[in-house]
């Protein structure tokens, strides 16, 4: 099977129903993507497939064969934190960190799509990403800060 992950073509063998999440972590060594619930509820495993946000715990790898995947490792640029990641640090949008990779990927997708960063829009964009620590306000602020810096 073939995937382009964070811009790099990769080929590997895997059982077709293996979760994309496990292929990323076990076969491709990209452990930034986390598992929370394994049932689509928490968003810790969020990645982009061909630019669209998905829960990688619900995608059988055979369905991603030939696609482009972006993980949290690919949001950073040449080893430097991306602006949105710096905003999370700045605003205290990460505490224990379990939700953070998924949040960053969802935030990245939100910023890409160019919707105005109103409280409502940001909350809708991260509605599938659960956080037990921050109470969300600081995450929303961080994303709004990043949106402000882009425009």
């Amino acid at each position: 099977m073939k995937l382009t992950v964070n811009g790099v073509p990769r080929s590997f063998e895997a059982p077709p129903l293996k979760r994309l999440l496990d292929v990323l972590r076990e076969d491709l060594g990209l452990t930034g993507t986390k598992e929370g619930c394994g049932e689509g509820e928490c968003g810790a495993c969020s990645v982009l497939i061909d630019g669209e946000l998905v829960n990688s715990c619900l995608v059988a790898v055979c369905q991603a064969d030939g696609c482009s995947v972006l993980t949290v490792e690919g949001v950073a640029r040449n080893g430097d934190l991306a602006p949105v990641q710096k905003c999370f640090l700045d605003r205290g949008g990460a505490q224990c960190g379990i939700c953070t990779p998924g949040m960053i990927v969802a935030a990245h997708r939100f910023l890409e799509c160019g919707l105005p960063a109103t409280n409502e829009n940001v909350r809708e964009a991260i509605a599938g990403n659960l956080c037990r620590c921050t109470g969300y306000a600081k995450i929303v602020e961080a994303i709004q800060l990043a949106a402000g810096q882009r425009s």
Partner: peptide, 9 residues
């Protein structure tokens, strides 16, 4: 239905 990631699949 769900949220973005569910709506995409």
């Amino acid at each position: 239905v769900g949220a973005w990631a569910i709506q995409n699949r």
